[in-house]
Each structure stands twice: as C-alpha cells, then as structure tokens.
Design a binder for these strands. Structure first.
Lengths: 334, 334
DNA sequence: TTGAAAGCGCTAACAC
DNA sequence: GTGTTAGCGCTTTCAA
C-alpha cells in the first residue's frame, strides 16, 4: 500500500527546519528580519522538501495579490497580442503576473470574465475598449482596485483610459484618401462584434459621404477580417462593384490579404485600386508596396496600461485619460 | 469624512438575507438542496449587494480550483495563439478558465512561471514542449495535478504528451524537396531559443547531408523568424550564396516573408528558387502560390491538451502519449 | 432543508 | 531576531 504524500505546508517546513511558521514565511517573502544563518537553513529545507507556496492562503490572509486580470477580445489578432506583450513586459518588471481572459468580442462573455476574474481578488484589471454590459460596468465601478480601459480612448473612463481616438484617426485616413483624388470607395470588415472596427468604418463612411462621394460597404462578409477574409472580401467586393478606385480594410492584416488578391489578379496598386489599412503592423510595411495605414502604438499601449495599474498600486498619481496618439503612414498603396 | 465600504462577504449577504452563510454558499455554487423560495431570495440579495465571490477563500477551503495554468512560449507566433484558442474553447465548455503565462522561449522564465502558477493551486497545468529546467521538472513531477506537455511529442512524458513528431515531419519535408531534384539548399530560422524549431532545422540539415547534398545554414540571423525576419533573412542568405535552389524556413510566417522578397526581386518560385515552410497556416495557403509546408493541427492540439486535463479531473482514463500527426502539403512553391 | 463548528494555509500585529 | 495569537472568507462535515 502506498501513501500519496500530501504536499507540504508552511507548518511542515517549519517543523522540519525547527523554527516557527512565521520565520519560514519571512524567509520566503524576503520581508522582515531573519538572521543570515536561519535564512540559509530554511531555504535549504524548503528546497529539499520541494515546498511550493500557497498563494491562495497567502493572498487571503494578506488581502494582497500580485495578479493583474487582463481581458482581451481575441488572440487571433496581432494587435491584441502586441498589446499583451507590452502588458506582460511591464508587469513582469514590477513583479506582477498577468492573468489573461479571452472575451471573443462578446460583451456577455466579457461580463462573465470580469466576474470570475475579480473573484480571484487580483490587484488590478485591464479591459478592452469602452463598451461593457450594465452588470460588468456595475462590478467594475464597484471595485476598489485600479481598472484600465484600453485601446479606444474615452473621456469618461470607469477609472483610467489608455488608447487612441479611433474616430479621429479614421477621419485623418479618410481625409487623406479623399485628398488623393479617389472617388469611388469601398469598405471591408467592421463586423459589429468588434465595436472599435465598426466605429472606424462608420466614421470613414460618414466622412466620405460628407464630401459628397460614394462609398460601398455591404454587410455581406461572413469571414473575419483576417488575411484570408481580406483576400476573399476584396474579390467579392470587386465582383459587385468593378469601378471602385479605393478600398478601406478594417485592419492591416485584411489589407495584406487584399494586396495579395491584387497581385494575383494583376490589379496595379494604387493606379487601378488604392488600398488602406489600420494599425501599422510591421509586416504590412514590408510588403512590395508599403501599406497606407494609421500607425498605432500597440506595445506601448499595453505597457502604459500596465504601468497605470502598477503606479496606482504604488500610490503614484495617475492621469485618468492617456492618449497614445496615432500617425498617418502615407505609404505606397494609396 | 467618507467611509470606503469594505466589499461584502458571504457573512454580510447571509445577514442581510436572514439566512446562514452555508445557505448562501449553497445557492451560489448551485450545490446541495435549498428551497426554491430561499434560493430566489438569496439570489436577489446577492445581486442587489453586488456581491462577488472570493475564490481565494473558496479554493482554500475546498482544495479545488477551476483554473488551469497554461504556459506558452510566445504570443507573437500564430502557432501558439491558435493552440491557445483551442485550449480556451475546450476549457470553457467544461467550466474551467485558462491562466496564461508567457515564457518567451526561456526555460528559466518557464521555471519561474511553473512555480508561481502552481502556487495558486490550479486544477491542471499545460506546458510547451519537452524541455524544462531541472527544478521545473522536479516541481512538475512532484505535483499531483494533471500535467500536459504539448506541441512536440515525447514518448516519456512527465504525465501526458500531446503533439506531433517534429523530427519525423522534418524528414518528410526534406525528403520531398530532395525528391523534387533540388540540390543546393538553404535554411533560415531555427534560433536555439525555440528548441522545436532548432530540432527541425538540425534534422533537415542532417537529412540533406545524408543524401550527399549541400545545405547552407549560417547562424547569422539576428531577427526572429517572423514575416520581416524571413524577408530580410532570405535577402541576406541569397547575397551570401546566389546559387541556392531551395530554402527551408523554420515556419510559415517567415516563409511568407521570403515569398514577398522573391516577388519584389522578380525571383520566380519555384523555378528560380523553391521555398518551404512549416505549420500550414491558412494565410500561406492563400498566397499567389500555395506554400509547400507541413500541415499541423494547432487548434486541435490545444483542444486535446485541454481535454486531457478535463478528462483526468473527471477520472476518465487518458492515454499518456497522443500523437496529433502531420501532413505534407505539396503546394506550389517547391 | 438549514445551520453550527472546525479548519483550509497562510500573514498582520504584537509580544518577547 | 523570533514566536504567539487571531483571523482572512470561505467549504466540509455533521447535527438538527
């Protein structure tokens, strides 16, 4: 008969080391004074026993956590993975860990994530964008931990907002293409699930129409605005309207798919067709013709979001609205 | 003077509802019998008070968790984000949450993540590949929760292995290109940080040399094997050796960068130069010439890894080694 | 169907 | 420098 050893607790370590639990605790956390001799002895015992701290108990007792909850809409989108990279790099430095939840662009799912993540009593929380269900909003407003809303900037954040003004950026991009003399525009992407993308498309359409120009943006694209979706989307769009002379894609990845379609079909960019994206991904700037797009600071946005959390936790005063800005890349495709 | 209300506890809810803590607990967890009347009343009070459960206390008391720790090397790699998507989709269904840590291909960092994630007492843990530091290995061997090693298959897993045989896949790919008659090979990528990629490159080189053929694979590429790295890498490689007739890239994304380089330079694929990737990403199959590569089941691998954890936790017997297989895509680039 | 007692494994606060 | 005491907010177990 074999006995499955229960995993050791602080008490076990303390007993073996011949000291009190508090002493072991102090050694493990590197807090409080412990003599050099004791410290070394305890460390050795901990190592030998393969003791792993129990943060559940620790956090419960201390009402403190080093976890930061981060909710992002998707991992299949370079934009969010770059933001995540920024967040984790900054949290790492300050000794915090990111706990990631994927909302799938679904506000109801986001609400569930908010609830379930806060139930682990994290030190802070980062959520995307500015739209939330009423219940999610209520929970986020009620919590005393720092809350960062990230990506799309808002002037009335729950707590802190970090991002850029998608509407302003879309207007700059639309104005640029209009100023280049294009007349018959198309739009691809901007499914209502991704509210920021939808807002960009809406803004661009309005801007173009305000100039008395035409824009064709049917809601017929089933595919997500990724590379393949951009490629097949452009193909469908051009079948319906052969006379378009400029197409906006809701993001750079989809735009790259569009460019590939043009290369395949012998459509000359930008003479036959102009193409514009949104984000400023590195890959799109390495295409045969650099993509005309809006450059955004994705990594930096994540880093700033994390920094706001960390600052708040260190009682450093933080501005509630942080505009990361954007920049038009004129590129060679429009 | 304002009083910051402390967030409500089970006891507070119980008091307001006029029942015991246990009754509230039963309602919240949906376990045990509670009268319909009481249940509705308690639910209403919970909602009104904006009570958020404290899983720290709950997990500590019950020694149970619905969190599964997942460590992946990087988020800037489609392969891992697709695997993650598979994991979260499957965990979701079973009521578990993924907690993600990014190791950055760094075994020491992975070790720290293993320790810090296990300290939150998750229900299971998923780690990439088959290489770990001694301490990480010791911790993972010592834990009684299910451990899945994923991506690269091993016949001697710590607990469960899910993935494909990268060596076998590399041989199939190398053999295919050799059979097509190419003679002067090049390799791009395979930095030692990504051990699976390095193993693939080593295998391919050996296979080619075993056939008495030449392969040029200098270790001079600073850039990571992403799109831009693949593009500039091919450019550098061809400057050093103009006579190459086939190039292996360590992944599809880098290979796409290589294809773009060829398009820009007027290099005809595959007549002037053959190109091969690894992974079978959708985007690469939407390029003007479909990429010759090895198709892998990324989403399914993640799903299977998660399913193994869930099965184990439900006491369903699980095979310790699960080969997800691979498939040669002959494509049009080689 | 409900409640009371005990304790999960740790840390804060204080005593020595 | 080190130890003692009293919880943190829940769930388990058992009694009513």
């Amino acid at each position: 008969m074999t006995f499955k050893a229960k995993r050791p607790t602080l008490r076990d370590v303390a007993e073996v080391a011949g000291v009190s639990e508090m002493t072991v605790s102090r050694v493990l956390r590197g807090k409080g004074v412990v003599s050099q001799r004791t410290r070394e002895h305890v460390t050795a015992v901990v190592e030998k026993m393969g003791y792993v701290q129990n943060h559940l108990a620790g956090s419960l007792a201390s009402a403190r956590s080093n976890q930061v909850a981060v909710i992002i809409p998707s991992l299949n989108n370079n934009v969010f993975t770059e933001v995540m990279a920024g967040i984790t790099s900054e949290l790492d430095k300050a000794g915090y860990n990111a706990v990631v939840g994927i909302s799938d662009y679904d506000l109801k799912k986001e609400e569930m994530l908010v609830y379930s993540m806060l139930s682990w009593r994290p030190a802070g929380v980062v959520v995307p964008n500015i739209h939330h269900t009423d219940r999610a909003l209520k929970i986020l407003r009620n919590t005393e931990i720092p809350v960062v809303e990230m990506m799309n900037l808002t002037q009335q954040p729950i707590d802190i907002s970090v991002g850029l003004d998608h509407k302003a950026a879309s207007q700059v991009l639309a104005d640029y293409l209009i100023s280049r003399g294009y007349k018959r525009f198309g739009c691809i992407g901007g499914s209502p699930k991704d509210r920021s993308a939808a807002e960009r498309v809406t803004t661009i359409k309005k801007r173009i129409r305000d100039h008395g120009l035409d824009v064709f943006a049917p809601d017929l694209f089933e595919e997500p605005p990724n590379f393949s979706g951009g490629k097949s989307g452009l193909s469908q769009l051009l079948e319906l309207r052969r006379d378009l002379d400029a197409v906006f894609f809701s993001n750079d990845t989809a735009a790259m798919g569009g460019i590939i379609h043009c290369i395949e079909q012998g459509i000359v960019i930008p003479d036959d067709l102009a193409i514009a994206g949104f984000s400023g991904l590195a890959a799109a700037q390495n295409f045969p013709k650099k993509l005309t797009t809006i450059a955004t600071k994705r990594f930096e946005t994540g880093r700033m979001a994390a920094r706001c959390i960390v600052n708040r936790l260190s009682n450093v005063v933080t501005k509630p609205v942080i505009d990361m800005g954007f920049q038009l890349i004129e590129g060679q495709t429009a």
